[in-house]
Design a protein around this nucleic acid. Structure first.
Lengths: 209, 209
DNA sequence: GTCTATAGATTGATAGAC
DNA sequence: GTCTATCAATCTATAGAC
């Protein structure tokens, strides 16, 4: 039956996700992965044609986690205004960090950087996700009811969205950078501080722009 | 004479800096480094006891570049206000990117992440630099003459600097994240866009806070 | 689908002459 | 300080039985 296979494949991806995130893709050896899971060497090569292919599956896993644990929950606050979305984004990102286990920083970003050269397709996939993320955030920001310019009929709709798009790019950059900083400091609270500061600054800007 | 030695050592560090930044520390082999420089294997081990030690020297090199090419030039605009410093920071960071050669993103951050596990000392050194950077930026921000709160005598000096420190952490996070994003998109202009947006948002905030 | 055993290539590091 | 030659370990990937 395929039951055990699916189990093994999933176990490999989950364990590799953790391993690649902590040690890095190149530094992590398949030996360690195999010892950790108790799965035989050739069984890995039954499920994945190469280590690189495993890395691609792990990237998909992390993108899925990123979406479900950070982005989707944050966008549920879209109705509460731009600052609320920003705060939720950083607050949920905080929950993905685990300094005690050595899992800090952004796993998507780190793994993508390491796989980019050998697998350009991975870089394109990640890039497409983040471009989409910026657009989704921009939509949410442009719909913020607390925005002054939204009530100003002299401001064209396109201009509003264009400015929202630029702020979305800023938010994504700050989020990625804060994840890096949290990893460097070994303290997830860095994310909360940066997120709150950004939310405050943007909120002030929106009220007076 | 030590002339040639110093030359070889420097050549090794410079070439390794480029190699480690593009390929990553683990993925880059000493063979490639040796072929690139034309230096013999054992000569490398005369100058550095291990690949890791070479990595540490490369980190110092990148920190030096970061300071001289990005931070120092930006802080020269301290007298022109917070927004000017922020814009200069991102503008100068832009010049460190070279998409054509595959040198994108923040070399300090990437290399530090890879070396962190094997060499905790490296992580501490990089962390200390960025903590210091945040303090220096906070000092510059707190001295911004265009700040409303600076003229408000009811606001304590400590509060002013504390808020400046939080914005400094935001700026550093945004800068690191923008470097990552620029690497992902293969376009240094991402840095300019994020930097300008941040400068605008902060400037608006300062005028009305 | 899963296993044991092994191939084949690469890598970081060392020995010793000059 | 620099070189050539080589070691020993590690790693990815494969072969073939069950």
């Amino acid at each position: 039956m395929t039951r055990t296979t699916a189990g093994n494949r999933e176990r490999l991806v989950l364990c590799a996700a953790d391993l690649f995130h902590r040690r890095g893709f190149e530094a992590a050896s398949l030996d360690e992965l195999l010892n950790c899971t108790g799965i035989a060497r050739s069984n890995l090569y039954y499920h994945f044609p190469s280590k690189l292919a495993l890395g691609q599956a792990v990237i998909d896993h992390w993108l899925d986690v990123y979406e479900r644990a950070i982005v989707a929950p944050a966008l549920e606050h879209a109705g509460e205004g731009e600052a609320a979305v920003i705060r939720a984004l950083f607050r949920h990102a905080c929950t993905t960090q685990d300094p005690e286990q050595g899992r800090v920083g952004c796993p998507v970003s780190r793994l993508c950087t390491e796989l980019a050269e050998a697998a350009p397709r991975v870089k394109e996939e990640v890039r497409a996700y983040f471009v989409g993320l910026e657009l989704r955030l921009a939509d949410a920001f442009a719909a913020d009811p607390s925005r002054e310019e939204a009530r100003d009929t002299s401001t064209a709709e396109g201009t509003v969205h264009q400015r929202a798009r630029r702020r979305a790019a800023l938010v994504v950059a700050a989020l990625e950078g804060a994840l890096t900083a949290a990893g460097l400091h070994g303290d997830p609270r860095t994310l909360l501080e940066v997120g709150d500061t950004l939310a405050e600054v943007v909120a002030e800007d929106l009220q007076h722009a």
